[in-house]
Amino acid sequence: MTCMMGDDCRPRCGWCNLNNPAYVAYHDTEWGVPTRDDGRLFEMLMLEPFQAGLSWETILNKRGNFRRAFDGYSIERICAYGEAKIAELMGDPGIIRNRRKIEAAINNAQVFRSMQATEPGGFAGYIWRFTDGRVIHETGKSTSVLSDAVAADLKSRGMRFIGSTTAYAYLQSIGVIRSHEPGCFLYGDGGGAAAAR
């Protein structure tokens, strides 16, 4: 795969739009960085289902709007959303106004909260157990045996809009899977850039 150079002359993954500073920053500092912080794990789990049928760049460009609209990702508030809040979200032009995705986000927040309370180590403990805490390095895929298993398990627990492709993108975003392309300055361990946070 072809990597592209930014203004700083560092080669990056070919999908990274160098004309979008937010996208470059996301590529350089977030994507593929292992995290065990339940707050970040929750934010990314909220955002990924909204991407279905759209580009991640579209979602990233609206990230601040999503954070505002969903009360700073307060899990307690989101779990309590009812019809009035759904109607408010459906009227918000700053986010993706898809009722099924909004309802799925609320439902998934409720499942996430339950898992935080019941899984050893919270949600982070749950998601990292799939790889025994190891980061998987692979490129050129959109699904895998791992994402199949994660999607199936999350769906069995009641989560919605979580197929294998969405699960794979989620695992990449939180650093369980590290997929920077050969030639990218972050390929492999990125010189230590992938330290868990």
Rank of each mutant, 00 (worst) to 15 (best):
L60G: 08
S164A: 15
K85E: 15
G121W: 03
A152E: 10
A167T: 09
G192W: 04
G140V: 01
A149M: 12
S142W: 10
N19F: 01
E57K: 08
R197H: 02
H180P: 02
A87G: 14
R113F: 10
I174H: 00
P182F: 09
W128A: 01
V111D: 12
E43V: 04
V33C: 13
N65L: 08
Y23V: 13
K155D: 15
W31N: 02
M5I: 11
G133Q: 07
S142H: 12
G175Q: 04
L186A: 01
A52W: 05
I177Q: 02
R113M: 11
L41E: 01
N20V: 02
K101H: 05
I59T: 05
S173H: 12
C9W: 07
T165R: 00
G163P: 08
F161W: 09
A52Q: 02
T2W: 03
R40I: 03
P11C: 03
G192R: 01
K62W: 04
G53L: 07
P21R: 04
Y168F: 12
D71H: 13
I106Y: 06
I174V: 13
D148W: 01
R10V: 13
S144F: 06
R63C: 12
Y187H: 15
L60A: 11
W128M: 07
I127P: 01
G188Q: 06
G133T: 07
W56E: 08
D189V: 00
S142M: 09
G122L: 07
Y26E: 02
A69I: 09
A194M: 05
H180G: 08
C3S: 14
I86M: 14
G190A: 12
F185D: 05
S144I: 06
G6W: 05
L154S: 11
W56K: 08
D189A: 00
C13I: 00
A124Y: 00
E138L: 15
D8R: 09
N19Y: 03
S142V: 14
T29N: 07
R12H: 12
E181S: 12
G121D: 05
S147K: 01
A25S: 13
L89A: 08
G91Y: 14
L47I: 02
C3D: 04
D8T: 11
D8W: 08
N17M: 07
N19T: 02
P11N: 07
Q172C: 14
G82V: 12
H137K: 07
I136A: 08
V145P: 06
C184D: 08
A80S: 12
